[in-house]
Design a protein around this nucleic acid. Structure first.
Lengths: 244, 244
DNA sequence: TTTATGCTATTTGTCTGACAAATAGAAGTC
DNA sequence: GACTTCTATTTGTCAGACAAATAGCATAAA
């Protein structure tokens, strides 16, 4: 006898909750196919439209994927690291966009948490991971890159750096900070046309990682953050002037 | 001339993207009302059902809230800290539930990142925040608490600790780790019936915070994690035995 | 035998139109 | 003035339909 309580939220939301619980608790395993929408509809005694709204809620959380066709359906999605990073970065950019986080806070957070992360990296980084970082840096060096592509490459570089920590949770967490920093990099890159300095910092980081030199890594990253903050305030001032 | 590319994703997903961008970029301000579903439908040239699926995707991210009635509609939602924490914890528990993160990783992440966080806390914690931590601990001491309530109080205590860092981004990030640790605490609490040890560790943490003793904080937290890990492996072994 | 082609059934994606439910505001009533 | 009632607006849900993708099978061609 479960107390189903008097529920005030919409049916589609409740169904989304139930399905979500079923997935998280393992009643539907990863990769498995959910019942068809029609069947869910009859099972819950609602229309397909309602079921679909529930499924779309889950899809927004990358919990289900859907495919059409006879072998299609709604599948429990094992979120890839990329998708996780995407949803995290979504949350982070949202916070920045809504002004719930300010730039100083984000930079401070990065400074605060990077130490431990880098410590892990120098211990755990595999040769392959170091190679990945190097590759990312090479890509970033291409002068033909648009500003946007340069920033993407920048994100890839920093992600590579935290990937080297070889810890999924740390990665999960640091990705969101990296993403939150994107607006800064963006502004600096587009106002300060010179990319060489950023590249130089990155080369320093890579070198220190290759030498497994923790202190070098920390000071290089600190210097990069100093540089970004300084240029950022300049760019911000310029933009303010333009606006006036 | 924008290259609109050949788009392969569903219309409702695209609309969700567009609305999301409009919100994040500030074209719809926080608290503002979006156009009615009917209007969005005609504006995008799709049916209301499609618009609704898009809106439900956003609702799942706590980006919009909806109310019925003449003064109702879909509103841009400034996510509260609680809602953010909720969606983060959702992501974290999901990861743990799906087995994408294992316990050792999470504990290692906590060890890795706590240092910086505590450093901030000893510097920035306000009297009020210290008081909040103390209150949370008092609540946790109530022997009448159910196991579940005890774990909730545990989460509240640790959240209070990271709140003391006074940095929104750090908080955002550490909340997810705290949440990911819940399954451990849960298991330890329900198998090892003695709560006094956990409470004792927490008292040590509180005291060190009050004294703004960073090293004390770190070692206390380390000890707590050691304790949890040890009890956790015991509990896990017991459970395995039961299962066999 | 192998490859190519088309058919068919299944499932999600979208549309249409309708009604139910909530509710803010106006109008009417005492 | 306080209360009730009515009305218009908007989201929530429903039912049924068709479009689009696609896996599997049958068939035809090489």
């Amino acid at each position: 006898m479960q107390e189903q309580a008097i529920i005030k939220s919409s049916i589609s939301k409740q169904i989304a909750e139930q399905l979500r619980n079923a997935i998280v608790s393992g009643r539907f395993k990863s990769g498995e196919r959910l019942p068809t929408e029609d069947e869910l509809a009859t099972r819950y005694g609602v229309s397909r439209a309602t079921v679909r709204e529930a499924l779309k809620r889950l899809a927004a959380q990358n919990l289900v994927r859907s495919r059409r066709g006879p072998a299609g359906g709604n599948f429990v999605n094992q979120p890839t690291h990329a998708e996780l990073a995407e949803s995290l970065s979504g949350a982070a950019t949202l916070l920045v966009g809504l002004g719930a986080l300010d730039i100083e806070e984000i930079v401070e957070a990065r400074r605060t948490l990077q130490g431990g992360c880098l410590k892990l990296a120098v211990v755990n980084a595999s040769q392959e991971q170091i190679q990945d970082v190097e590759t990312a840096l090479q890509l970033q060096k291409d002068p033909a890159l648009s500003d946007e592509a340069f920033c993407d490459a920048d994100v890839a570089f920093h992600r590579g750096l935290v990937d080297a920590s070889n810890n999924g949770m740390v990665r999960f967490v640091m990705y969101s900070i990296i993403e939150a920093l994107v607006p800064i990099t963006n502004m600096v890159v587009s106002y300060v046309k010179d990319r060489r300095e950023i590249i130089a910092f990155h080369e320093g980081l890579l070198l220190a990682l290759q030498q497994r030199n923790e202190e070098g890594l920390e000071s290089a990253l600190d210097a990069l953050l100093d540089y970004l903050m300084e240029r950022f305030s300049v760019a911000q001032a310029q933009r303010k002037q333009h606006a006036s």
